[in-house]
Computed example of a mutant assay.
Amino acid sequence: MVSFDGLLYLVVFYATLALAVWAFVDAMIRPAAGFIAAGKLTKPGWMAITGIALLVLLWMQNPLSFLGLPAVIASVVYLVDVRPAVRGLRRGNSNW
């Protein structure tokens, strides 16, 4: 029988893993010039940060560990600060 604590831990782990995947994929699809234009760290820098965060979460399998928590924070910082700045820049007359 699965305990409530175990189920809650699985939900937290998979939610943080999905967050890290989202941050990495989003950093991968954004144009490199947008990062510079927004005054943020370069695209390879953010891809490295989010990629390492994803690998740490997969390796540790504990988002609340000594290395897991900074990995989650790095993904959240990208999604909350960098993504809106880069996403707000549009190329040409495109509606995307």
Rank of each mutant, 00 (worst) to 15 (best):
M1I: 09
M1C: 05
M1S: 11
M1P: 09
M1V: 11
V2K: 14
V2E: 14
S3Q: 03
F4P: 00
F4G: 02
D5G: 05
G6I: 05
G6C: 03
Y9Q: 13
L10A: 09
L10P: 00
V12E: 14
F13D: 01
Y14W: 10
Y14F: 12
Y14R: 10
A15P: 00
A15Q: 03
A15C: 00
T16H: 11
T16Y: 12
L17H: 10
L17Y: 15
L19T: 08
A20E: 08
A20C: 09
W22T: 13
A23L: 04
A23E: 01
A23M: 02
F24G: 00
V25T: 11
V25S: 07
V25P: 00
D26M: 09
D26P: 00
D26Y: 04
A27K: 04
A27W: 03
M28L: 11
M28T: 13
I29H: 15
R30H: 13
P31W: 01
P31G: 03
P31R: 09
P31V: 01
A32E: 14
A32M: 07
A33G: 15
G34V: 00
G34D: 05
F35S: 06
F35T: 09
G39F: 09
G39R: 12
K40F: 01
K40E: 14
K40Y: 01
K40S: 10
K40M: 11
L41S: 06
L41I: 03
T42W: 03
T42I: 02
T42N: 05
P44I: 02
G45W: 04
W46G: 04
W46K: 03
M47L: 08
M47T: 00
A48H: 04
A48T: 14
I49V: 07
I49H: 00
G51P: 09
I52L: 15
I52Q: 08
A53L: 04
L54F: 09
L54Q: 01
L55K: 03
L55T: 03
L57P: 02
L57E: 01
L58F: 14
W59D: 04
M60S: 10
M60G: 00
Q61T: 12
Q61I: 08
N62W: 13
N62A: 13
L64Y: 11
S65D: 02
G68T: 04
L69F: 14
P70D: 06
A71M: 08
V72D: 05
V72H: 07
V72P: 03
V72C: 06
I73L: 15
I73D: 06
I73G: 08
A74C: 12
A74N: 08
S75E: 01
V77M: 13
V77R: 10
Y78P: 04
L79A: 13
V80W: 09
V82P: 08
R83E: 08
R83K: 15
R83Q: 11
P84R: 07
P84L: 06
P84I: 07
P84S: 05
A85N: 01
A85K: 11
V86M: 14
V86T: 15
V86F: 12
V86H: 10
R87V: 06
R87L: 07
G88E: 07
G88R: 08
L89M: 12
R90T: 15
R91W: 12
G92S: 14
G92A: 15
N93G: 12
N95F: 04
W96V: 09
W96Q: 08
